[in-house]
Amino acid sequence: PLPPALTPEHLISRIMEAEPPEIYLMKDMNRPLTEANVMMSLTNLADKELVHMISWAKKIPGFVEFGLLEQVHLLECCWLEVLMMGLMWRSVDHPGKLIFSPDLSLSREEGNCVQGFSEIFDMLIAATSRVRELKLQREEYVCLKAMILLNSNMCLISSEGSEEPQSRSKLLRLLDAVTDALVWAIAKSGLPYRQQYTRLAHLLMLLSHVRHVSNKGMDHLHCMKMKNIVPLYDLLLEMLDAHIMHSS
């Protein structure tokens, strides 16, 4: 689906341009920090971010060339991973804290007020520490996020008997192009060749942690919804329901 002339450098610059703006909660964080208040703020923010995420995905070169059904599936599968990757990126310079938005950050202790959140919080802080340790660069970060989107349902769609046989090969070609872009970004650092491919492996291994925390987070959000601790509206509810539907 990519124009043949799109070099790794051009592809990265297009993906960088697709980056969503900073999203503000735009209201005072409700104090005291109760379970309901924190969850309300986080889901409110997630709902706003999701709207921008759709716009981001549409700007990833090649994405809108997929059928609508494919676009829906990809976003449904990866939305929480993409949100979490953004959260980790924003939090990288703030050890021990998670920067949900410029006007909403929580320490581990503050996150503890939500039942079952401390485990997820710790996993996110640990993954963010790893990002800090790796000194992830912005160009690498945007490539990883695009890879999360394109790889999200790779193991859910069959290579045989697909409704759209071209779809899978298009997806693989696009994923290869983003991989080339990531390799190009790593090479730009001037690291010795051996360290370049070990860095590539380390960066890709981050993604398995992100998938793991996302699955935990999805279960937690579902649980919060079932217990009526937080009312979910609009796009967030739609995306959560789609995920639960796929899992079952």
Binding site: P20, K48, H52, I54, L68, V72, L75, L235, E238, D241
Partner: peptide
């Protein structure tokens, strides 16, 4: 059509060109 019903907002956002700023 049931799929479209279940993903009403997602479909709408994917298909239209409305700025997310207007929708957020």
């Amino acid at each position: 059509s049931s799929l479209k019903e279940k993903h009403k907002i997602l479909h709408q956002l994917l298909q239209n060109s409305t700025s997310p700023v207007d929708l957020a």
